[in-house]
């Protein structure tokens, strides 16, 4: 099996490998926060600091780089270009691809095999699609490539990825009806924690990712997983936009 798709151009790791276990660090993490305690390092309704810069990738038509503590994502936009397939399309196509670098997660992500995450790409596509004026670009395709350099939870990746992609689209001069901003929130006990890290998501009962166009006050994507009461969902949905406009 390994011989068939063996990539000679890369340094191949051993067939079977395990992520290193850092005993000491694990202890520090465990002692820092326990269920039921208030959130450490920031207030429940605070988000992490964001570094966002556009135009870092020269050869792309538009690009952006976002960093929120341990989440680092680079995004490049190519196009609009002519669609490769011959069928006529009245509306343009937005193509989103998310790739993880092998060193982005705790466990190594092998190149080619599990570098791509379609579910994140679908979530980002859903949030962006209604903001881009694709009806102005018949027969064309816009490619959005996101590279996750460091990941701190899926939720953080999706939310930061949406912000980066929307910024890059604007940087690329693509017509949009508004910028899309996105933020995740987790319900931990009776509190709502905005912009949770991976560890915080794991200790929460449910998570919501909300993407909206602040300029129009509309929601483009709502993504909830886990267990939440209806009023919690609504409370979080109200809270996220009030804090996410920056």
């Amino acid at each position: 099996m390994a011989q068939a798709n063996f990539d000679r151009r890369r340094i191949n790791g051993p067939e079977e490998s395990h992520p290193p276990i850092f005993g000491a660090e694990e202890l520090v993490h465990g002692s820092r926060w326990k269920a039921g305690q208030p959130r450490d390092s920031r207030k429940p309704e605070d988000i992490r600091r964001i570094f966002l810069k556009s135009g870092l990738i020269d050869q792309a038509n538009g690009s952006a780089y976002i960093e929120t503590e341990r989440t680092k994502i680079a995004c490049a936009i190519y196009g609009p270009r002519q669609s490769k397939n011959t069928s006529f399309n009245e509306k343009g196509k937005l193509n989103v691809e998310v790739k993880f670098t092998p060193f982005s997660c705790d466990r190594r992500r092998a190149p080619m095999r599990d570098a791509e995450d379609r579910s994140i790409a679908v979530a980002i596509h859903q949030a962006l699609i209604s903001s881009v004026r694709l009806e102005l670009l018949p027969k064309s395709t816009i490619d959005v490539f996101l590279t996750v350099i460091e990941a701190d939870g899926i939720e953080g990746c999706i939310a930061s990825g949406i912000v980066a992609a929307s910024t890059a689209l604007a940087d690329g001069g693509i017509e949009m009806i508004g910028l899309v901003v996105s933020c995740a929130a987790s319900v931990v006990g009776s509190e709502t924690w905005l912009d949770p890290t991976e560890a915080e998501t794991q200790s929460s009962e449910g998570t919501v990712i909300l993407s909206c166009i602040p300029a129009l006050g509309t929601i483009t994507s709502l993504w909830q997983s886990g267990q939440m009461r209806q009023h919690d969902v609504l409370r979080v949905s109200l809270l996220v936009p009030s804090r996410a406009y920056f």
Partner: peptide, 22 residues
């Protein structure tokens, strides 16, 4: 216990307003 929401997804192009969503 009262009903709980286990998943919510918006699918497809389009937007909604928060009050509608409620």
């Amino acid at each position: 216990t009262p009903p709980v929401m286990q998943a919510m997804r918006m699918l497809g192009p389009g937007e909604v307003v928060l009050t509608e969503l409620k």
